[in-house]
Design a protein around this nucleic acid. Structure first.
Length: 576
DNA sequence: GCCGTTTTCGGCCCGACTGTTTTCAGTCG
C-alpha cells in the first residue's frame, strides 16, 4: 500500500512550495491531498487500477494530483517533486520543523546565512549572526535556541495511553483553580486518537488573566512559551506541550468544538456556516453581530442544522455527510461493556492473581472476565504448560464458586499462532477452554501472502473464537505485520468468529481504520484491555474509544452481550 | 491546485500571541 509514501511526498512538496513562497492555496491543496491519502483505508493502487476517474473522485484530488499519483505508481517517483528538491536544499525542511521557524524565516536564514541544516541553525544562533537579519532580535534568538533543543529531545507524538494519567492530574489541578467555571481536555485526547502531539485544555471563566497566571505556576510545568489574555502555551518537564485556552462561559460549547477539532472537521463546519450566512469561531455561531449559539456544543451543531457529532468521529471521515443524512451511528460506550475479554494473571506474565482480578472486575461492575494467559511456547511471558492447564482450570472454577461467579471467570487462553499457522496447544487442551484467543508474537517478517495464510489457518481451527491484536503493531515502535485484511476479515465473518481491539496503550490493535473496515464487513469485534495488572483494566476505555473512532455500535461488540448471550455465542462458534 | 443547485473563474476558515515594529509580519493551532 503506497498511500503513506505518496502522502509524504505531497507533504514535502507543500513544504518546499511554501519555502519558495508559492501560492498559499496551492500549498493548501497539496496538504489537503496528503491528509486525505494518509487517512484512506483502501490502497491507492487499487483505486488507480479502476481508472483515472476513480482517483479524481477522491475529495481533494483533482486532475493534476491524480496524474502525479499515477506517475508515482508507474515510475516510483514524481518529477515535480524532484524538480522542487533541486531548488530547495534538503536540510531546509527540517529547519522549518523547528517551532518558530516558518517558511519566511527559513528562507531568510538560508539565503542570507546559508543555513541548510539543524547544525548550521545552531551555529548561526549561537554566533549571533542571526541578529543581522531583519525582524530578528535577541529574544527571538534565545527562543529559537530553546525550541531547537526541545525539538531534538521530544517532539514525537506519543501513545494516547501514555499521557492519560498526566491529563487527569492536570485537569484536576486546573478545575481546582479559583474562578474556573468549567474545564476540559480537548484536542486529539478527546477524540481518542491513538497518538497525542500536545495537550489542549479549555477553561470557561470571566477571569482569564488570573487563571492563566496561576496555570503557568502549576507544578510540573518546566517552561512557559507564551501567555496572553486568552491563551497560554507551556512545556512539561518531559517536553510535552500543553496549551490552555480561555473562553467566556457563554462560549463554552463553541470553545469545546474549536479546541477538539479535528482541524479538518472544523474547517468543514466553518464552510457549512458560511454557506448558511453564518460565521463559526471559538466564541460562538454568529449571524452578523449576534451570537445565536455557543453555550454548549449541541447548540453549535444544531445552529448549523446538524445533530451532535461525538468527538471520536470528528475527523472529516464522512461524519458530516452522515450527520446531514441523519445516519450517524449509535456508538458503543464504556457503560455498555459487560466484561473484559483479555486479561493475564500470575499463571503467566500478569502481576495479579485470579482472585485479585476477579475482585477488581467486580468493582468495575463487570459480569464476566476472560482470563487469557499466554500459551506454553511464549517462554518470555511464562506461558502456561499443557500439564499445568488442568490445575489452572480447577482454580478458576474454585474462584467462581467462592465469588458466586460475580463476575464469572471464563477459563481462556491467548494461544500462540506458530510460524506455520498451527497452534501452541493441541485440540484436547483447546476444547477444555471456554474462550480461545489466538495471536502472533513472533516471526513478524513474513511476506503478505504467507502471513495471511498463517492467520487463516489459525482462525480455521474449530476451537478458536477470537483473533487477538491482529496487526501486531506497537505504536511508534513496530509497524505491524503485512496481511490481506480484506481476506482475513471476510474469513472471520464467514466462520462467525471475532477480531479484537486490544486496548493496551502501546497497541490499540486493531487500529481505528482497520476496525472500521472489519465492522463494515459485519465482523464481530471483541474488546480487551490486555491487562497484566489490575490497574490496566482501565485500558478498556481506550479500546472503547478506538471502537468509537471505528464507528462501531454496541451490537457489533461481543462484550456488550450478557453472560448468557456470550456463553451461547462461544458455543455457537464451535458448533458451526 | 481544487471546486461549483448562486460560480468553469474567483474564490478558498478564523483568531491569538510574539517580537520587532510605529502599524504589523510571521507563526501557530
Amino acid at each position: 500500500m503506497k498511500n503513506a509514501e505518496i502522502s509524504r511526498l505531497f507533504q514535502e512538496m507543500a513544504d518546499m512550495l511554501e519555502f519558495l513562497g508559492d501560492n498559499p492555496f496551492r500549498i493548501r491543496a497539496y496538504r489537503q491531498a496528503a491528509r486525505v491519502l494518509a487517512d484512506l483505508e483502501t490502497p491507492i493502487e487499487d483505486l488507480a487500477r479502476q481508472g483515472p476517474n476513480t482517483l479524481e473522485g477522491i475529495p481533494g484530488i483533482g486532475p493534476d494530483l491524480a496524474a502525479k499519483i499515477q506517475e508515482y505508481l508507474q515510475s516510483g517517483k514524481i518529477a515535480a517533486h524532484e524538480e522542487l528538491a533541486r531548488k530547495v536544499p534538503a536540510g531546509v525542511l527540517e529547519v522549518m520543523r523547528i517551532p518558530g521557524v516558518g517558511p519566511k524565516t527559513a528562507q531568510l536564514l538560508w539565503s542570507r546565512l546559508g543555513v541548510d541544516s539543524l547544525a548550521k541553525l545552531r551555529a548561526a544562533l549561537e554566533s549571533k549572526r542571526v541578529l543581522e537579519l531583519p525582524r530578528f532580535g535577541e529574544k527571538k534568538r534565545l527562543r529559537l535556541l530553546e525550541n531547537l533543543a526541545l525539538a531534538q529531545s521530544a517532539t514525537q507524538r506519543r501513545p494516547l495511553g501514555s499521557v492519560l494519567w498526566r491529563v487527569r492530574e492536570l485537569l484536576a489541578a486546573i478545575r481546582g483553580l479559583p474562578q474556573v467555571e468549567q474545564a476540559e481536555c480537548c484536542g486529539s485526547v478527546r477524540r481518542y486518537k491513538e497518538t497525542v502531539g500536545d495537550l489542549d485544555f479549555l477553561v470557561a471563566t470571566r477571569q482569564g488573566e488570573q487563571v492563566l497566571a496561576r496555570f503557568t505556576q502549576l507544578p510540573g510545568i518546566a517552561d512557559v512559551e507564551a501567555v496572553g489574555e486568552n491563551r497560554a502555551t507551556v512545556f512539561l518537564e518531559d517536553g510535552l506541550q500543553v496549551d490552555l485556552k480561555i473562553v467566556p462561559p457563554e462560549s463554552w460549547g463553541s470553545g469545546l468544538q474549536y479546541l477538539t477539532g479535528s482541524k479538518a472537521h472544523s474547517i468543514r463546519l466553518r464552510k457549512l456556516a458560511l454557506e448558511q450566512g453564518l460565521k463559526l469561531n471559538e466564541y460562538g455561531v454568529w449571524k452578523g453581530e449576534k451570537r445565536i449559539a455557543g453555550r454548549d456544543e449541541e447548540s453549535v451543531y444544531a445552529a448549523l442544522g446538524l445533530p451532535f457529532i461525538p468527538p471520536p468521529l470528528r475527523e472529516d471521515w464522512g461524519e458530516i455527510e452522515a450527520a446531514q443524512a441523519g445516519r450517524l451511528p449509535k456508538l458503543v460506550e464504556l457503560k455498555d461493556i459487560r466484561g473484559d475479554l483479555q486479561v493475564h494473571s500470575t499463571w503467566s506474565d500478569g502481576k495479579n492473581t485470579l482472585l485479585e482480578l476477579a475482585q477488581a472486575a467486580k468493582a468495575l461492575g463487570y459480569a464476566y472476565l476472560a482470563v487469557t494467559d499466554h500459551s506454553q511456547s511464549l517462554r518470555i511471558a511464562h506461558g502456561v504448560r499443557v500439564q499445568q492447564m488442568k490445575q489452572r482450570i480447577r482454580e478458576i472454577r474454585e474462584i467462581n464458586e467462592r465469588t458466586g461467579a460475580k463476575p464469572y471467570l471464563l477459563a481462556g487462553a491467548e494461544v500462540e499462532i506458530l510460524e506455520d499457522g498451527s497452534l501452541d496447544y493441541p485440540d484436547e487442551v483447546l476444547k477444555e477452554l471456554e474462550i480461545v484467543l489466538v495471536a502472533i508474537h513472533s516471526h513478524f517478517g513474513q511476506d503478505e501472502k504467507t502471513e495471511t495464510r498463517r492467520i487463516l489457518k489459525a482462525l480455521e481451527n474449530p476451537y478458536v473464537h477470537i483473533l487477538s491484536h491482529p496487526t501486531c503493531r506497537l505504536i511508534g515502535q513496530r509497524k505491524g505485520i503485512e496481511a490481506d485484511w480484506q481476506k482475513v476479515f471476510s474469513r472471520a465473518k464467514s466462520l462467525g468468529k471475532a477480531v479484537e481491539i486490544d486496548g493496551h496503550y502501546d497497541r490499540l490493535d486493531l487500529p481505528d481504520v482497520r476496525a472500521r473496515q472489519a465492522g463494515e464487513m459485519g465482523v464481530m469485534i471483541s474488546l480487551g484491555s490486555d491487562a497484566h495488572q489490575i490497574d490496566h483494566l482501565r485500558f478498556m476505555d481506550l479500546a472503547v474509544g478506538t471502537a468509537q473512532r471505528a464507528w462501531l455500535g454496541p451490537l457489533q461488540i461481543l462484550n456488550t452481550k450478557s453472560l448468557e448471550e456470550l456463553l451461547g455465542w462461544l458455543e455457537g462458534v464451535r458448533e458451526s
